[in-house]
Design a protein around this nucleic acid. Structure first.
Length: 282
RNA sequence: GGCCGGGUAGCUCAGUCGGCAGAGCACACGCCUGAAAAGCGUGGGGUCACCGGAUCGACGCCGGUCCCGGCCA
């Protein structure tokens, strides 16, 4: 068996403590893929992840091994196992559209009206206030000449996967999850998360748009820049953002009918292992 | 003790001339195909510190009480 990490932040080299990366010994005992494949100053994207993760899965299978895809970035899971095709990007056009939407009064409403006119199906699954999604849809339409909606039915439609997959989800009572998140931050602080961020920040190549938004890193950077003088407040903010992330993960994965759920009302990951293993290797 | 400022949602605070109680954050629910640890929508939640008064009508005006902060003694 080999592990493929399905995680948008563990791809970054050097961002070890805050992304709860697998330890050295874990990585020595089982091969891990898609960990440490980019530098913090590089932009990362779901399309790049899709290509590299699928290549990793293919290589694992070619070795006669079994791939264990492990992680919590919902869009990335679907990008790997589902037949998602991401239309290309046009960063110049995107920047132009973004500037127009943000500068002109009523620009966002105009952009949404345009999307409704040229691609009603895409407009229907995009909320009128969501600048980022509206701009992306218009970018694709204008650069490809095709409706944005023609590239797929949407993420809530689950067709056949591109290779055979068994999907398992692990749940935990919310109160326990909260407690664990809090304790996890304490542990990260003790292991030197603040120093890790400071060291990475000393590199003049800086932080890419994607790397800089990682939970914990973003808040500590704000502290180092003097924007958030209170380090405890920065920590609290990171804890709350983790909880919000966990909530979005719950929402994302629980609507996927292909997932079999495992869990127990106790604070123990090991508690679910027997049932999980029995299901996985009958 | 005196003077001044304040007390409104879990938190931080708006509230114009007296006319149905508001925002941000938090929380809950949900959406989202090249930033996804991102972005976005909807919702629940109130003894407007308390007591009394004038008024058709008070968070707002008048009188009093309590609490918090600052200054003075």
């Amino acid at each position: 068996m080999e592990i493929v990490s399905i995680d948008s932040m563990q791809v970054y080299r050097g961002m070890d403590i805050g992304t709860a990366k697998p330890s050295r010994s874990e990585r020595e005992s089982v091969p891990h893929h898609l960990v440490d494949v980019a530098d913090p100053w590089e932009d990362w994207s779901v399309a790049r992840f899709q290509a590299e993760a699928r290549a990793a899965v293919a290589a694992i299978q070619a070795r006669g091994h079994r791939a264990l895809l492990l992680g919590g970035t919902g869009l990335y899971v679907q990008a790997v196992v589902d037949d998602l095709r991401f239309p290309g990007e046009d960063l110049e056009l995107r920047a132009e559209l973004t500037a127009r939407v943000e500068r002109e009064p009523g620009g966002l409403a105009d952009a949404y009206a345009e999307l409704e006119r040229v691609d009603p199906a895409a407009a229907a699954r995009t909320e009128p206030g969501n600048t980022r999604r509206i701009v992306r849809a218009l970018e694709v339409i204008q650069s490809t000449g095709q409706p944005f909606s023609s590239f797929g039915p949407g993420l809530g439609e689950y067709g056949p996967t591109v290779f055979p997959v068994q999907m398992a989800g692990v749940w935990m009572p919310r109160a326990i999850l909260r407690e664990r998140i809090d304790q996890r931050f304490d542990a990260m602080w003790e292991r030197g998360l603040v120093e890790e961020v400071r060291d990475l920040d000393d590199d003049s190549r800086g932080w890419s748009r994607t790397a800089r938004q990682a939970i914990g890193y973003k808040e500590i950077l704000a502290h180092l820049r003097g924007e958030q003088p209170d380090l405890d407040a920065a920590r609290d903010s990171a804890v709350r953002r983790t909880w919000a992330l966990a909530r979005r993960q719950r929402v994302w994965f629980r609507r996927d009918p292909r997932i079999t759920w495992f869990g127990a009302p106790v604070n123990s990951r090991a508690a679910v292992l027997p049932a999980l293993l029995a299901w996985w290797c009958p």
